[in-house]
C-alpha cells in the first residue's frame, strides 16, 4: 500500500498556481464570457472553496460526509448561479475545474511516485465529483423553486377579476387555459361574485388561443354554478375557430355570448337597468349613465 499523498501540504505549497490554473480553466469554459460574474468575484469564490476543500481532501476516507461549511458554500453558490441564469454545466464546471490544477500540483510534488499520484487522484476525483453532483442538485432545486414561484405569479397575474360597474364583474382570461388553471380562475370568479354582490359576470376569452373540451366543460360548469348562486354570466370574445371547435366537439355553449367585451358590457348595463347616453355636441360632460 502506497503512502497517502499530503494534500494539505500540496495545496499550501502550490496555492497560487492552483488558483491561477483553476481560473484559467473556468475562463476557457466560458463562465466569465457572459459577464454575469466578475473576475474578482470568481477568484474570491475559488479561494474560499479551496480553503474548504483542502481539509476535506486531507481527510482521507472516501466516504467521509461532505463538510458542513463546504456543503453550505456550494449550495449557496449553485443557488445564486441558478438565479443568475448560468447553465447546470457551467455551475458544476466550477467544481470540476479544480481537478486539473490539483493533479498538476501533486505531480510536481511526487515526481517519481506514480502509485501515490494515482491513489490521490482517484480519491480527489471521487470527492470532487460528489461535490459537482451536489452543485447540480442544488442548482436544479433552485430552478424548481423559481418555476413554482413563477407559476404562482403567472396564475395570479393572469386572472384578475375586475369590477366594471356596480354589480358587473369581468374576468379577462389571457393565455392557454389548462384544466387546473381554469378551475382556480373559476373558483376565484364565483368568490368575487359573492364579495361584490355582482349580478352579472362577463368572462372574456379574447386572449385565449384554444379551448379544449375539458376547459369548455369547466366554463359551462362555472356558468351553471354562477346561476345557482343567483348571478348571470356572459361569455365574450369567442374566436371563430374556438366556436367551431366547440360545435365539433359537441359542446353546446348554452350561454349568453357576445362578440366583444364592449358588447357584453352594454348588455350587462342594460340588464341592471342602466343606459349609456351619447352627449357629443352638448357640454363637455363625459358619458353619463342614467337609471
Amino acid at each position: 500500500m502506497a503512502v497517502a499523498a499530503d494534500w494539505a501540504g500540496v495545496i499550501s505549497r502550490h496555492h497560487d498556481e492552483i488558483i491561477k490554473g483553476w481560473l484559467q480553466q473556468l475562463r476557457d469554459d466560458g463562465t466569465l464570457q457572459t459577464g454575469r460574474i466578475k473576475d474578482a468575484e470568481l477568484e474570491g469564490e475559488c479561494r474560499r472553496m479551496l480553503a474548504l476543500v483542502g481539509p476535506e481532501l486531507a481527510h482521507g476516507a472516501a466516504h467521509s460526509p461532505l463538510g458542513g461549511e463546504l456543503r453550505d458554500m456550494l449550495v449557496a453558490l449553485s443557488r445564486s448561479r441558478a438565479l443568475q441564469g448560468f447553465t447546470p454545466s457551467e455551475t458544476s464546471n466550477f467544481v470540476l475545474g479544480l481537478k486539473l490544477p490539483l493533479f498538476g500540483a501533486i505531480g510536481v510534488d511526487y515526481p517519481d511516485q506514480a502509485d501515490v499520484i494515482a491513489g490521490a487522484t482517484i480519491e480527489a476525483t471521487r470527492k470532487l465529483d460528489r461535490l459537482a453532483l451536489l452543485t447540480i442538485e442544488s442548482f436544479q432545486k433552485s430552478r424548481e423553486e423559481v418555476i413554482i414561484r413563477q407559476q404562482r405569479e403567472i396564475a395570479e397575474l393572469s386572472t384578475p377579476v375586475v369590477k366594471l360597474w356596480d354589480g358587473i364583474l369581468a374576468l379577462p382570461l389571457i393565455g392557454t387555459l389548462d384544466s387546473e388553471r381554469t378551475q382556480v380562475v373559476m373558483e376565484n370568479m364565483l368568490q368575487s361574485i359573492v364579495e361584490h354582490s355582482a349580478e352579472i359576470a362577463i368572462i372574456d376569452i379574447t386572449g385565449v388561443p384554444t379551448v379544449d373540451t375539458l376547459v369548455a366543460q369547466h366554463l359551462l360548469k362555472t356558468v351553471a354554478a354562477a346561476r345557482l348562486m343567483g348571478a348571470d354570466c356572459i361569455v365574450s370574445g369567442i374566436r371563430p375557430q374556438i366556436a367551431q371547435t366547440m360545435v365539433h366537439l359537441g359542446v353546446e355553449l348554452n350561454v349568453i355570448s357576445k362578440a366583444s367585451l364592449a358588447d357584453a358590457l352594454a348588455l350587462a348595463l342594460q340588464r341592471i337597468g342602466k343606459r349609456v347616453v351619447d352627449t357629443a355636441g352638448a357640454t363637455a360632460a363625459p358619458v353619463e349613465f342614467l337609471r
Binding site: 373559476m186 364565483l190 360548469k221 362555472t222 351553471a224 354554478a225 354562477a226 345557482l228 348562486m229 343567483g230
Partner: peptide, 15 residues
C-alpha cells in the same frame, strides 16, 4: 327563489 348559495356548494352541485 333560492338565495345565497355558496360558491363551493354551487360548484359541487353542478359536478
Amino acid at each position: 327563489v333560492v338565495v345565497g348559495m355558496r360558491p363551493a356548494v354551487a360548484i359541487t352541485l353542478v359536478e
